[in-house]
Simulated assay, not measured.
Amino acid sequence: MTRRVVWVGCGRHAEQMLLPQLSRHDIELVGVCDINPEAAKVVARRYGVQHVTTDYNELLALPNIDVVGMAAGPAQHRDISIAALQRNINVFMEKPCGASAADAEAIQAAAHAAGKIVAVGFMKRYSTANRMAYNVVKSPEFGRVAAFFGEYMTAPTYFTGNVDYTGFYLHHCVHYMDLVRYYVAPVTSVTVFRNEIEAGKQVLHVHFGFENGAIGTVVMGTLQSRGTPVERIQVMGDQRRVEVNGVIEVNYFRNPPFKADDPAASLSDGVDTLSWKPNFTAAANEDFKGYNALFGAFFAALDGQASDLPTIDDGVRAMHVLEAVVRGIQNPGKTITLAAR
């Protein structure tokens, strides 16, 4: 079934990351919008779109629209998604789902009232390497998760002159507020330690408590060049752990015997390490960032198929965890307890 889609926000992220992956699916892009008319015109030319505007309400008024997609800003995501839901239009929004948990809850209420789907762009669930690691962690062989460790760094590129970390929290950190719950369990507490070496350059160690008794730490900050690898994940169980380096390499460590004293030692199925890297030389579109699979899950959900699509319900949970982290930053070393969700 071909879906009629309109899109709001034609900046670099949408142009280079989102729309090329969206176009791989059975959609008709019938309208685009941006407050910068030239940016909208560029996207319209590229995809043969006839309706170009700077007012998203014009897109929502077009006939027979199935989906509005957006990559705009926190407040815009709240307002546009609620307006779309009031017209019974499904929504795909890049994260964040508003500027606050209250914004996310307003979108959630509108989605439930309309009976429509709001997908949130937590694409890290769908990175090929992350998905492989997730499937390992959720397998009976892996057993109960005991600990999570992550690093997710960036450079101080969110700031020009006036240092305000809000963009860093909403656009960067929020990814891991969803990912830790996805891999482990609902978050029950956070404790934050912070080191700001100068304005705009900080590092956070965020410690998580989980509903299943697991513990976790995620290191996030604005101290590293984006020209270097800045992300890795480790999930640990009993005598097992799985690691993802830079979203493109998976290592699954199990419980091998020592090899040194065994002259017949070899590589043994079932105990030795399994490793995977993508083959970028193949004539295939590796979905290492996960956007294509995320859109696939969205359209599958619209068709009524079972899916682990991150929805506005997940967005609300992630925003509550993020707000707990921000409170923890303001109260370093103090444990912030979260209500069950």
Rank of each mutant, 00 (worst) to 15 (best):
6 V>S: 03
8 V>F: 01
29 L>C: 06
29 L>S: 06
31 G>T: 03
38 E>R: 05
38 E>Q: 09
41 K>I: 09
42 V>T: 12
46 R>N: 14
47 Y>V: 03
48 G>R: 00
58 E>L: 08
61 A>S: 15
64 N>H: 13
65 I>M: 12
67 V>E: 02
67 V>I: 14
67 V>S: 04
71 A>Y: 06
85 L>M: 02
85 L>V: 04
86 Q>T: 02
86 Q>E: 09
88 N>D: 13
89 I>H: 06
89 I>Q: 06
90 N>M: 04
106 A>W: 04
112 H>I: 15
113 A>K: 11
120 V>N: 09
122 F>K: 00
124 K>G: 10
132 M>D: 05
134 Y>K: 11
138 K>F: 12
139 S>G: 11
139 S>L: 12
145 V>R: 06
151 E>N: 10
157 T>Y: 11
159 F>D: 13
160 T>Y: 14
162 N>M: 12
163 V>P: 01
163 V>Y: 06
166 T>P: 09
167 G>N: 15
171 H>F: 14
175 H>C: 10
175 H>I: 09
185 A>F: 11
186 P>S: 08
195 N>G: 02
201 K>R: 13
203 V>G: 03
204 L>W: 15
205 H>D: 15
209 G>Q: 07
213 G>P: 01
218 V>N: 13
219 V>F: 01
220 M>H: 09
221 G>L: 05
232 R>V: 09
238 D>V: 10
245 N>P: 00
245 N>F: 07
252 Y>Q: 08
256 P>Y: 07
260 A>T: 01
263 P>C: 02
264 A>S: 13
266 S>E: 11
269 D>I: 11
269 D>G: 15
272 D>V: 07
278 P>F: 08
286 E>K: 03
290 G>M: 06
291 Y>V: 13
291 Y>A: 05
298 F>T: 00
298 F>E: 13
300 A>V: 11
301 A>V: 01
301 A>T: 02
302 L>T: 05
305 Q>P: 01
307 S>Y: 03
307 S>D: 02
310 P>C: 10
310 P>I: 08
317 R>Y: 04
320 H>G: 04
321 V>W: 00
322 L>C: 07
324 A>E: 09
325 V>C: 14
325 V>D: 10
326 V>D: 00
328 G>W: 00
335 T>P: 00
339 A>N: 14
